[in-house]
């Protein structure tokens, strides 16, 4: 494992922990898109189908379990917790899951490395992860005023993506047979979706003002 990959995993982990801690301690999920969180839970559930069949490393298994448990706990908090669910911006979070899930599923049926259930689900999870942030970005755009934690959450997710791209470049030059177009292209698309948000995030940080997206 290289340093970019480890740093990428750690920022990914931190993004989820920041979100869970926010929800758990202030008992509020204001500004967080349930649609995005449900899509992430689906991403992890379909990608980690190999968790009990292919052992890669203890690190790999533990991280998979953490991502599954944390993503499903966040969804549980937002839907079921009797205090937290009241702070959910239901009327603003109107993005339709199916608009993202169906095209990703169709695409995965046609573009995949091998036409097996596990492989198609794995490819589907990559495509879906690339666009799963969209409901959250739409919600940010609508509410405009973003609290620090929500801003940090999206920032950490973006950092995770950027570090994964550096990891792929590093692996491409250091490992033989390391060519994965599906992963790279969907990963690149995902990272580009954050570019606009990053621009405003850095500006607000540089000028030391509260993050606000343009109307």
């Amino acid at each position: 494992m290289n340093i970019f990959r480890l740093a990428g995993d750690m920022t990914h982990l931190m993004s989820v922990i920041v979100l869970l801690l926010k929800i758990h301690t202030i008992k509020s999920c204001a500004g967080i898109s349930l649609k995005t969180q449900e899509l992430y839970a689906l991403v992890f559930a379909t990608r980690y189908l190999d968790i009990f069949t292919d052992f890669i490393s203890l690190y790999n298994t533990i991280m998979k379990l953490i991502f599954l448990a944390s993503s499903f706990s966040i969804v549980w908090y937002m839907r079921q917790h009797k205090i937290v669910r009241r702070s959910y911006d239901k009327d603003q979070d109107t993005f339709r899951h199916l608009f993202l899930i169906l095209p990703c599923l169709l695409l995965a049926l046609f573009i995949n490395e091998k036409f097996t259930f596990k492989e198609v689900m794995w490819t589907f999870s990559l495509f879906l992860e690339a666009v799963a942030i969209l409901p959250q970005l739409v919600l940010l755009q609508r509410t405009r005023n973003i609290d620090n934690l929500t801003g940090q959450y999206v920032f950490l997710l973006g950092a995770y993506r950027a570090l994964y791209i550096l990891n792929w470049i590093y692996r491409y030059f250091t490992e033989p047979h390391y060519v994965h177009w599906i992963t790279w292209i969907s990963g690149l698309v995902q990272t580009l979706l954050y570019a606009d948000f990053f621009y405003y995030y850095f500006n607000s940080w540089k000028n030391n003002v509260k993050l606000q997206l343009p109307a």
Partner: peptide
């Protein structure tokens, strides 16, 4: 080489 492929990523 396959077991050191992209599938070891999260």
């Amino acid at each position: 080489a396959e077991q050191f492929s992209v599938k070891d990523e999260l």
